[in-house]
Every structure is written in C-alpha cells, then in structure tokens.
Amino acid sequence: MADYQTIGSVGAGARAGQIDQGLRAHMNKVYGLMSVGMLLTGAAAWAIAGLATTTDPSLAQAQIGDQYLTSLGVAIYASPLKWVIMFAPLIMVFAFGALINKLSMASAQLFFYAYAALMGLSLSSIFLVFTGASIAQTFLITAIAFAALSLYGYTTKKNLSGFGTFLMMGVIGLVVAMIVNIFLQSPALMFAISALGVLIFAGLTAYDTQNIKNTYLQHAHMGDSEWLGKAAIMGALQLYLDFINLFMFLLQFMGNRE
C-alpha cells in the first residue's frame, strides 16, 4: 500500500510540476504579447504625431495651440475623421470578443497587433497636448504600478472574482461619463473621471491577472493548445487595455501640457 501511495504522490507531484511550468510559459506568452502590442502602439503614436505636425509654419495647413498641423494632422485631428479614429478601437474590441472563437490563433494574434497599431493612431494626439518628458515619466510610473498590481493579482491567495462585476460596471459608467463630457467639457467632471479611472483600472489589473491565471489552471488538463493560445491572446488584450487606460488617466493628473 505504501508503494502505491508513493507512486501516486510522485505522479501527482509530476502533474503539478507540469502545470506550474505550463502556467509560467502561459503567463510569459501573455506578457510577451502585451509588450509587443505596447511597442506597436508607442511606435505608431510617435510616428503618426511626427508626420501630423511640423515645425515649419510655411508647411502648415492649420494650427492647434502651438502645434502646426500638416495635411495629415488636419485630417486626423481637425476633421470628422477624428471621431472615427476615436471610437474605432472600441468597436474593434467588441468585434474581437465576438470573433475570437472563429479565428485561428495566428489570425487572432494578427488582429491584436492591428488593434494595437490602431490604438497608436488614436493616442497620437497626446503628443499635441502633453510634453514628451511628461509622457515618458507617466509611462514609467504606470509601468511600475502595473507590474506591482499584476504581481499582486498573480500571487495573492485572496479571491478577487467578486470584484469583477463591480469593476466592469465602473468601466461602463466611465465610458458613459466620458462621452457626456465630450459635449460638456467640464474640468471638474474630467477630474472625477480620471480619479475613478485610476482606481478602477488598478483594480482590473490585479483582477484580470488572477483571472488569466485561474483560466489556465482550469483548462490546462484539456491539452487544447489552440484554445490556450487564444486564451493567452485575450489575456494579453485585457492587460494591454488595463495598462493603456491606467496610463491615460494618470496622464491627466501628471502630464505637463504643451
């Protein structure tokens, strides 16, 4: 009997070791995909902002504050096209969620990278509003905060699932308030939105990290590499959105305006 118990213990330990190793590989893939997405977004935003502005007034087609816009800048920042650029990433997120089960893993990954590039176009306007130094400083602070929050979500024994519904309701409320403030242009409402946004997406960073981990642990025994691969892409998208939104809301507090 002792021999059977020993064999069973060894077998269980081996399976646990395989799951732990698989989980590390899964999380590394999630963070790797997210990092590539962030690089694409940053590069696209910086490049597009550079093409949309000029330091030569004679080449400018329009001016916003101290910034001279090229014809591209006028098209994406000062024409009705700006509304399409603003809301296109939100539409793509919903489309991605609806299509993920129909897409192959390679197609899903390509979709994510295309989304990250489009988000770069949408965020390129921050270079017209905030100084480059304050954008870099806020990005660094966001990265440190994100890493700490994600580590907490990964290591904590506390079940964070109960916060999910509350946090998602908060996100919906934020979106509605931001749309309303497009027309109201209220500084007080914008300050409140930014403060709540930081708190909500800080919570979502920890919650989503734990959820990605638990999803892998619940499905690891199935051995479906295609499903797990797409789960990693969805996890990368969730954490990518948490980072971007945390960065944008912090930028409202910490960014020095041009």
Rank of each mutant, 00 (worst) to 15 (best):
S194N: 13
Q5A: 12
L33H: 07
K230I: 01
L99E: 03
Q252S: 10
Q185F: 05
L184Q: 10
N159V: 00
N159T: 05
N159K: 09
H26R: 11
Y154Q: 12
L237K: 02
T131F: 00
L69R: 13
I200V: 15
F112C: 05
T55I: 01
I48A: 01
G153H: 07
R15P: 00
L251W: 04
V74Y: 02
Y115H: 13
S71P: 08
A195H: 02
S125N: 09
F94H: 04
F130R: 13
V10G: 06
L160H: 10
L59F: 05
A45K: 11
T41K: 04
V129H: 08
H219A: 08
A2K: 07
A60T: 11
A106Y: 00
N256Q: 14
S107W: 04
T209M: 14
S150G: 14
L23N: 04
D66V: 05
Y115T: 08
M38F: 08
K82L: 03
S9M: 10
G229M: 09
Y240R: 02
F96T: 08
F183H: 09
T155D: 00
A12H: 08
G37L: 09
M86H: 06
F139P: 00
A60W: 00
A195N: 10
N211D: 11
L118R: 10
N245D: 02
I193L: 08
V129T: 15
G42E: 03
I244Q: 06
Q18K: 15
A116Q: 07
K157C: 02
V30T: 09
T53N: 05
L90R: 05
Y4S: 14
F94Q: 10
S134M: 05
F253T: 09
V84I: 13
L39Q: 11
W46Q: 06
L189A: 12
L217Y: 02
Y31P: 00
A133P: 01
V129A: 07
Y154W: 12
G170L: 04
L69E: 03
V180C: 06
L90E: 02
W227T: 10
K29Q: 07
Q18V: 04
T155M: 11
I135G: 14
A75M: 04
L72G: 08
F166V: 15
G73A: 06
T215R: 13
F112M: 15
